[in-house]
């Protein structure tokens, strides 16, 4: 009989990085599916292109750094899918390639790869293309157009480096009812029109590829939280603080500020709260820190939406939260058992 001698820990958990990542990807599949069902070929091409670019960039930097391949930890896939879901469905593919490259190269590889990155890579990619191509990233297309499974939106196949064609005529041809070409948030900001909660919940509004259906995102998030692959406190803190802030504003001036439900369901807040803010490498680890982090993101998002020049603020709010994460962690360190609190006299 052979006896194996090992030092502790003797019980090894089954929660490896790959396993967590795989489940996150799995939980994203319904959202991707819904997006493709809504927007057809263009959304599918966008998802595949961005993910493939992210994987290729990850491999390239592995090679350059002479490291073993990190493709099979699935993190690059998550970055790619999440990035694609935050882009407009008919985003030109060549710009999507730029976004994917920037996300992995600048957002992750230059910091030293998975776990060393300060910011959520997918959001770095989006922030870059938002600044680089401000027009293309606010060009929206109607969902459920008749030929969505047989033809691409003209902008999708723009030749590399070239300007996407004007799609006003194309959109008219689709004859989709009540398509305004503006997101619910933009319509609220500039026209004071508040979209109905029903439309926002089921996703029949103008938006990025994957942020339309609030219900679906919540369900997928609930699955992850239930399986403990995600810290449920972060989305709860983000959404809670956003709702509270919005509620206070509405209390102050109901004519100007929309209801908390509109704030929660519109734009990328759901997707951001559930999938972006919860990125393990870029969110705090202490219990108190997690609440502070989430609450900060919620409040900043609402502030940017209400008072900033942009219509949507989730991306910058989360990036700001990421930047503050090390600081939050540092100030919320729990006391080591048996030691005295710093600053207290004996």
């Amino acid at each position: 009989m052979s006896m194996e001698l090992r030092t502790s820990p003797h019980l090894v958990g089954d929660r490896s990085v790959e396993r967590i990542m795989k489940h996150v990807v799995l939980s994203l599949l319904p959202i991707c599916g819904f997006s493709v069902w809504q927007y057809g070929l263009s959304a599918l091409a966008l998802l595949l292109t961005v993910t493939a670019t992210c994987l290729a960039t990850e491999r390239l930097f592995n090679r350059a750094a002479k490291q073993p391949s990190t493709l099979n930890d699935w993190s690059a896939v998550i970055t790619g899918v999440l990035l694609a879901l935050t882009l407009p469905p008919a985003f030109p593919l060549w710009m999507a390639v730029v976004a994917g490259f920037v996300a992995i190269a600048i957002g992750k590889a230059l910091f030293g790869g998975l776990g060393s990155n300060v910011f959520n890579p997918a959001l770095i990619g989006r922030a870059f293309v938002q600044a680089a191509f401000p027009v293309a990233i606010t060009t929206w297309v109607p969902a459920f157009s008749a030929q969505r499974f047989s033809e691409f939106v003209p902008t999708t196949l723009t030749a590399p480096l070239m300007m996407p064609p004007d799609i006003v005529e194309w959109v008219k041809l689709q004859a989709v009812d009540a398509f305004t070409g503006a997101t619910p948030l933009a319509r609220w900001k500039f026209e004071n029109v508040v979209a109905s909660s029903h439309d926002l919940l089921t996703g029949v509004v103008t938006a990025s590829a994957g942020e339309t259906s609030a219900i679906l995102i919540l369900l997928c998030g609930a699955y992850l939280a239930a399986r403990k692959f995600m810290d449920w406190r972060i989305p709860v803190a983000v959404l809670g603080s956003a709702a509270l802030t919005a509620w206070l504003f509405q209390l102050y001036d109901p004519a100007h500020f929309p209801a908390p439900t509109f704030v929660l369901l519109s734009g990328g807040l759901m997707l951001g709260a559930v999938y972006m803010a919860t990125d393990m490498a870029t969110s705090p680890v202490t219990p108190l820190g997690v609440w502070i982090y989430g609450a900060l993101i919620g409040v900043v998002t609402v502030m940017i939406r209400y008072f900033g020049g942009l219509t949507e603020g989730v991306m910058y709010a989360i990036l700001l939260g990421n930047a503050l994460t090390p600081l939050i962690d540092r100030y919320t360190q729990p006391r080591v058992f048996g030691t005295r609190q710093q600053g207290k006299k004996k």
């Binding site: 600044a131 680089a132 191509f133 480096l161 300007m163």
Partner: peptide, 28 residues
């Protein structure tokens, strides 16, 4: 801008990378 010394390189339909002429572009 798709130009070098004011000479257009890619033709009229070039999509400018706006970020490059903004301050962040300098850092990048």
């Amino acid at each position: 801008a798709g130009q070098l010394f004011g000479v257009s390189l890619f033709g009229a339909s070039f999509q400018p990378w706006v970020v490059m002429v903004l301050p962040p572009g300098g850092f990048f």
